[in-house]
Structure formats: C-alpha cells, structure tokens
Design a protein around this nucleic acid. Structure first.
Lengths: 164, 164
DNA sequence: CACAATTCAATTGCGCACAACCAATCAAGG
DNA sequence: CCTTGATTGGTTGTGCGCAATTGAATTGTG
C-alpha cells in the first residue's frame, strides 16, 4: 500500500509499513554493533599473547608500516583523536613498545616511533591476520566484498553526519 | 598498483603472500571499526533531540517491544552484561524514562519497565529509523543483504572466540 | 620586533564494553 | 534446620571513543 501517513497506532495493531522500518533499523544497528563487538572479542583472544588490545594493535600496524610519525598523522590514519591516542600511546610506551618524543623541528608535535622491542613484536604478529581471517569463516573474495561495502557505507554515514 | 611503501623486509623474508594477508586483515578490521563508529556518529546526531545515546536507544527499543523484562533478559536481547547495563539503566532511570524494581517472585531479579514518559518517547523516536536508513544511502534490499552478511560473520566470530 | 590567528597535543569529563570479583537469593541435600 | 551450589545483579578496575577546554608553539601580518 501507499505509505501510511503518520497515523501509526501506538500500541494496537502492527502497522506493517512503519513497524517494518523500525524493525529493519533495529536489525541493521544490532547487526553492526554485534559484528563489531564480535570482532573485538576475537582480536582480544588472538592478541592476548602479544599483550595488545585491538586499538593498540591497529596503532602498531600503522607504525610498522610507516616506521615513525607524529600523533596527528597517526590519528588521521586511524580516525582517532588525541583524546583516545594520548593515553593509549602512554600505555604502549609504558609497555616498552614505542617511544614518544617532541619533534625538534616543531615543538608542538610529538613523534611516535616503535622501539626495538616494538619492532620485534611484528614478527610475532605475523600470524594474527591468518587467524582472524580464519575466524571469519569467509574466503578472501567475500572479505574483500564486505570490506568494500562497509567502506561505501562509512563514507555515506560520515557525509550524512557531516551536514547536520 | 601495489603502492608498496618503503616497508623494507625487517627480518629478511617479505613474502608477498604474507604481506597481502596482513594488509587485507588491516583493511577489514579498519573497515568494520570505521563503519561501527560512523554509525555511532550518525546515531549521536539523530538521537541528540531525544537525549539518548546509541546503546540507550537500543535498550528503549527492546523495552518498547517487550514492555517489561528483567535485566537478565534485557542483556540477552542486547548481548550486554550487567556491568554495562547497570549504570546505563541507572542513567535512564535518572532521566525518568524507566523504573527498576525487584521482582516479588524472585528477589534476585530486577525488572525494568518504561515509565509513561519513556513510553511517550517512542512516538518521537518513530522518525529515527527513516533518518538512519536515509543516512546509509542504501536501499532496503542492500541493507537487508548487508545485515545478513554481518549476522553470519558475527556467528562465525563468536564460534571462533568460543573455542579458545 | 610585537601581536593575533592558527595549529597541535594534552587534559578533563562522560559514557560504553568487558573481565573479575562480590553479595543476596533461591533450591536441593544432608 | 543448616549447608552447599547455582543463579542473578551489583561493584570495581581497565581501556576505548568522543566532545570541549587549555596551553604552548608556530606562522602570518603590520
């Protein structure tokens, strides 16, 4: 039928149109929320041996590739701000995995660099991706496709949140 | 293609296969992480008028459908434990949206029920799903498909995390 | 050189997620 | 009756995510 005007009975019958919107919304937000936490749970198990949390692992991944970069750049890679990164990096520093030091060129900037110990951790982390991919029970093609869909979704959501 | 950054083989062997695994893993975890937070950001904007956070909205969704249920059942619906729910429910109670009271039948159980104010909030929340779905820039079919894929993924991840 | 605007990181405060532990309650067995 | 065990919420501690503020350093301009 044509979309019922907002005359949705509050509690009586179940108006198929409006109710479906609400339920669909609930399912998609439930699903994404649950998937995100499920992923976090798997990473928690896999990363326990390395003594890293999931976001800490993300930080180390970037540092392993980039080698050294200021907090600002690090935050751009991960889409995290200093409010999240500052205490996280302090914990990584306390664990002896990274060093933080003020840039000589720009005293405002703090440069993060993996220590020898942090760099060596990379080898032990090499096995992580395989275990994660295995846990998804998906093949590479499906993962790639899902990733692409999520990236498209993220861009749309960011754009929508931006303009309000 | 292959914009391989100056990631010199740190330890000697840098088999392209391994490197690809690591990068693919990074992309899927980045993507899911980013999508989850992007969703959260949109919900933050949309729910600001209602004075609800995203998890609080999830709780109210369940209560609007179920009407009244113990914390245990609520946690099963949302896959959240009391460590998360207890303070959250206290905040909802402080906002006058729910009441918590011990069950007469079983003194161990605490039953949560929306207040009149909390029930009335449902009507103002009716518009939320449409705005969220619009923000995704996807049609219903695509959302349904993505949700199903995420649910499958979540089940696989939960199973993998379980057995270790 | 002096001053204002900008940039950047740190800090603070609030809320969520989860693990570990604790307290109260109910049920079953002696 | 009392004890044991299981169930159910609560509490505490750690860490992430984000908004808002602060403060220092750099850059731009006269």
């Amino acid at each position: 039928m044509t979309p019922t005007p907002a005359s949705a009975p509050a509690t009586g019958t179940a108006p198929s149109g409006e109710e479906n919107w609400l339920r669909l919304d609930r399912q998609i937000c439930f699903s994404l929320h649950a998937a995100s936490r499920a992923f976090n749970g798997v990473y928690r198990v896999v990363l326990k041996d390395l003594g890293l949390t999931y976001p800490q692992y993300l930080v180390m991944l970037v540092l392993w590739e980039e080698g050294e970069l200021p907090v600002k750049k690090l935050g751009e890679h991960l889409r995290l701000d200093s409010g999240t990164l500052s205490p996280l990096l302090k914990r990584l520093e306390a664990a002896g995995l990274v060093v933080r030091e003020r840039s000589a060129r720009d005293e405002r900037s703090v440069v993060v660099r993996p220590t020898r110990e942090g760099a060596e951790l990379r080898e032990r982390a090499e096995q992580v991706p395989r275990r994660i991919v295995a846990a998804t029970d998906l093949d590479v093609e499906e993962i790639r496709d899902l990733r692409d869909r999520l990236d498209v979704l993220t861009r749309a959501l960011d754009a929508a949140a931006e303009e309000r």
